[in-house]
């Protein structure tokens, strides 16, 4: 790789990892990958499985795309990325099926739908195809953790309010009347909307303070 023009990128840059956690968080800031974010966050265990599966596909595809970036012809790169991603998603699909059939059933088609998650294709095209293998790995790790964190934010709120439990353990008193709406589709939209509102508010306040 030493003949590559981006010689500066040879060194590992921890910023590539950190930016995915907050500053460029795929869900809350870039608003990408909405379908799985809303669909599978009705319980914490679903959110964790989805986050881990997506991170696995993200890391593996970023690694492969980055190491093949001088080999893949420019004209067919998107088709190649999609094929790479689809292969890893098939692997993840069969692994989850083997490890826990219950989780597999509750996630349903959404594991297969990781293929069309725009975060993964977006990182392959925008980052891994231009940067070294090490940096691509850090980028994928950061984005994966950021995505899982966002899913947990949604899944935690929805499971506690909609079912009174967290990871299946009761956390609220027995007299708590569950808000069924939170685990229904509408609740997903409302929870995500509320989180986005909170982050908008915090950002606006920060801007106001820095202006004074």
């Amino acid at each position: 790789m030493s003949n590559h023009p981006d010689a500066a990128a040879k060194t590992l840059d921890t910023n590539e990892f950190i930016k995915g956690l907050w500053k460029e968080n795929p869900v809350f800031i870039q608003v990408l990958g909405m379908c799985p974010t809303l669909a599978v966050t009705n319980s914490v265990i679903n959110a964790i499985t989805m986050g881990l599966a997506t991170s696995f596909v993200l890391i593996m595809s970023n690694l492969l795309v980055s190491s093949l970036r001088h080999v893949i012809p420019k004209q067919v790169r998107i088709a190649t990325y999609i094929l790479i991603i689809a292969s890893f998603v098939t692997v993840a699909d069969y692994v989850i099926q083997a490890v826990s059939l219950d989780v597999y059933k509750s996630l349903g088609a959404f594991i297969a739908l990781i293929v069309v998650n725009c975060i993964i294709l977006g990182r392959a095209e925008a980052f891994a195809s231009k940067n070294s293998v090490g940096n691509s790995l850090l980028d994928a790790l950061g984005m994966g953790v950021g995505f899982t964190f966002a899913l947990l934010c949604l899944g935690g709120v929805r499971e506690i309010m909609g079912n009174g439990t967290f990871l299946g353990y009761h956390v609220l008193s027995a007299h708590y009347q569950p808000w069924i709406i939170m685990i229904l589709p509408g609740g997903g939209f409302f929870t995500l909307g509320a989180w986005l509102l909170l982050f908008n508010y915090l950002r606006k306040r920060k801007e106001k303070i820095s202006m004074q």
Partner: peptide, 22 residues
């Protein structure tokens, strides 16, 4: 209000539509 504009508002509206379709 400024804070609500954009994606947050669109998602809230989608939530209400989703309730209607139930």
């Amino acid at each position: 209000p400024d804070t609500v504009k954009g994606t947050a508002l669109a998602i809230m509206v989608a939530g209400i539509l989703s309730l209607t379709f139930m």
